[in-house]
Structures are given as structure tokens and as C-alpha cells.
């Protein structure tokens, strides 16, 4: 083979070897493993530790709160509305270590040291989703803060873990009682509340057909002095919890009778006002929740007295707020309305 050809071949081979060695040396590990990128970077990216956990991981330690939440309106998978723990409390599995971050870790990650956020300003927190705003779809529950609650914090009335359940109602520990056992004790009540729970005296409430848990709670509240009425406090002082529950079950089982005083114009005015009461006391005053009283058919003087007492001295976070903005005339109209609707 001619010399110059050999040289040319040598140069070509040398260049090829140099190119190959150079490429091997300059190319990072695993670069062409899957394509024109560093193959190992996929596993590196995938190896990051997730920060957001799931509600199930919260349940391990916070079972009671989890149960409260999982039964409530903020956990409604059928409608696709699920407000998980970490939506309000922040990521549970470790936080950002960025010193400028608003929720920098103060220690090792939760649950060892790191405290999760507990939103202090519930108005700010809840209105992130529930403030009435153009652009929010109609199916989203929205409020105008000024007219809905004024300066009140949402948590005064709503249980933050299950917002439709109100705070007062959640406190109830009463269980359904035994009506037959209650009937024996009920004889003591008949003098004032009537033989079958239908009161003859308009200032004393009828109990027949009233919601059960509410009645039991009321008796217990009189016993503990949380509700103040001399007669009732002395009547209730010797009743055990189970006796109170049985008594409540008995009255709840009786057939109610509407007061029907026939004050139609006042009742019509009251009907307008009553729309605001419906979310707790039920459409037409028949409560669907055992912990809140039905108002339908109760006597006007009793209802009026109750509303006035909420405006004055009687303690109830929810009712105090409602009653404080009502005039005496409003109360009278509202009482008329409920006195005249059918109680079942």
C-alpha cells in the first residue's frame, strides 16, 4: 500500500480513537442510557421526599379530629369536595427549610417537633374559598362577610373541622333514651307542661314532639345551672343523665299540637324573617337535627320570651348573635309565624 495512504488511514484511525476516548471521558455517567440526557437524573428526581401526606396519615394520631372531619361537609367525595387536613394546616411531612419561607421548619419534621399551622384568623382562612367573588362557580358556598358574620370569627358558630355542624351542637353528649322509662318520670312534669306534653299555659313550652337530644341537653343544662329558671333547676337537680335522656325520648315520641293563635298579618311578616332560621331550625320550623329544637307550633309568648332572653342574658354563641340585631317587633312577628305553622 502506498505510504501516503497508510498515513491517511492512520490519521483517520487516530482521530476516531481520540474522538471516542474524548467522548467517553467528557460524557457524564448514564448520559445516553435512555436518550440524550443523564439517565440517573430520573431516579434522582423521583427520590425526593414527599412533603404533603394524606388525611390517613393524620388519622393515626388525631383520630377524633379525623372522625369529625370525615363525617362532615368538608369530606364529600361524591361531589368532589374534599378539604383535606393539609389544605388548612399545611404540609405534614416536613416543611421548607428556606429561611425566608413563611413556614420554615422550627425543628425536625412533624410529628417530632414541627408544629403545623393552626389558622388563628378563621375569617381569613375560610374566605379563601367562601368569600363571595365573581368567577367562583355557583355551586360553591359563598358569603359576604359583612352581612354574614360581621366581625365574628367563623369558628364562633361553625366547627372548623365540619363547618355545617355548629359549635354548640357538637358539645352534646346526650344519647337517645328509652321512652317507656321516661313515661314514668314524666308525671312530675305534667302539672306545667301538660299531661301529654301539650302545655295549657302559653308562657310554658309544649314538649310533645320536640327534638330529643335538644330536650335532654336542656334538662342537663338546667341541672348544671347553665340554663337559669328556678322551677326547672329544682325539677332537674335530681335527674340522672340517663333519666334526662329517657324523659326526653318520651316527650319526643308524643304527638305535638300547634298553638295556632291566628295572628295572620304578623305571621306573614315573620315568615320572611324565618328564612334565616331555616338552616338550623328547619324549613317551617321543624328541625331535622336532633340537637336543635323545632320551633313550629310553640306558643308565641314562649318564643318571644326566649328570643328576648338571648338578646339579654342567656348564653348561646349562635343565638346571641342572631338576637342582638332583632327588634322587639321582629321578635313578635317571628314568634307569631312559628306559633301558627303546623308542627308536623
Amino acid at each position: 500500500m502506498p505510504k501516503h495512504i497508510t498515513r491517511l488511514l492512520l490519521v483517520i484511525v487516530l482521530a476516531a480513537v481520540l474522538a471516542y476516548v474524548g467522548k467517553q471521558w467528557l460524557t457524564v455517567e448514564s448520559f445516553y442510557r435512555f436518550g440524550h440526557y443523564r439517565g440517573n437524573s430520573v431516579a434522582e428526581i423521583a427520590s425526593d421526599k414527599p412533603k404533603y401526606a394524606t388525611p390517613k396519615s393524620c388519622e393515626t394520631c388525631h383520630a377524633a379530629k379525623y372522625a369529625e372531619w370525615s363525617r362532615g361537609v368538608h369530606n364529600n367525595p361524591e361531589q368532589g369536595k374534599v378539604v383535606k387536613c393539609e389544605v388548612c394546616h399545611g404540609a405534614a411531612g416536613g416543611r421548607d427549610k428556606n429561611p425566608n419561607g413563611y413556614n420554615s421548619a422550627t425543628g425536625a419534621e412533624h410529628p417530632k417537633n414541627l408544629k403545623l399551622e393552626i389558622p388563628a384568623d378563621t375569617v381569613r382562612q375560610c374566605t379563601l374559598c367562601h368569600e363571595q367573588m365573581p368567577g367562583r362557580p355557583l355551586q360553591q358556598k359563598q358569603i359576604v362577610v359583612a352581612t354574614h358574620a360581621g366581625t365574628q370569627q367563623c369558628k364562633v358558630c361553625h366547627n372548623v373541622h365540619s363547618p355545617r355542624t355548629f359549635v354548640g351542637a357538637l358539645a352534646s353528649t346526650s344519647k337517645p333514651g328509652n321512652p317507656a322509662a321516661g313515661k314514668a318520670i314524666a308525671a312530675d312534669c305534667a302539672a306545667c307542661h301538660g299531661k301529654l306534653g301539650i302545655s295549657e299555659d302559653a308562657s310554658i313550652p309544649s314538649l310533645a314532639g320536640q327534638t330529643e337530644i335538644y330536650l335532654a341537653d336542656a334538662i342537663k343544662a338546667y341541672k348544671k345551672g347553665l340554663r337559669k329558671d328556678e322551677t326547672m333547676m329544682s325539677m332537674a337537680k335530681d335527674l340522672s343523665d340517663s333519666a334526662s335522656e329517657n324523659l326526653a325520648a318520651y316527650f319526643a315520641s308524643l304527638t305535638c299540637k300547634s298553638a295556632q293563635d291566628g295572628e295572620t298579618p304578623a305571621a306573614a311578616r315573620g315568615q320572611v324573617l324565618a328564612k334565616k332560621c331555616a338552616s338550623c331550625h328547619g324549613e317551617n320550623g321543624i328541625s331535622k337535627q336532633a340537637m336543635w329544637p323545632s320551633l313550629a307550633g310553640l306558643s308565641k309568648p314562649y318564643l318571644e320570651k326566649a328570643l328576648k332572653s338571648y338578646k339579654a342574658e342567656r348564653k348561646n354563641g349562635m343565638m346571641n348573635n342572631i338576637a342582638k340585631n332583632m327588634s322587639d317587633a321582629d321578635m313578635a312577628d317571628l314568634a307569631s309565624y312559628y306559633a301558627n305553622v303546623a308542627c308536623r
Binding site: S47, P50, A91
Partner: peptide
């Protein structure tokens, strides 16, 4: 955005999907 590649490869949803309260 990586679709939270470190989460989806562990059987979790991306963080944004996890917290979206209205699906």
C-alpha cells in the same frame, strides 16, 4: 412543574391535586 414526579412514582397524587378542595 414535574407533576410532582417524586410523588407520582410513589403512588401519590401531585401536591396541587392532593390539596384542591373542589377536584
Amino acid at each position: 412543574c414535574t407533576w410532582c414526579y417524586h410523588r407520582i412514582t410513589k403512588g401519590l397524587n401531585p401536591a396541587c391535586v392532593e390539596v384542591c378542595p373542589v377536584s
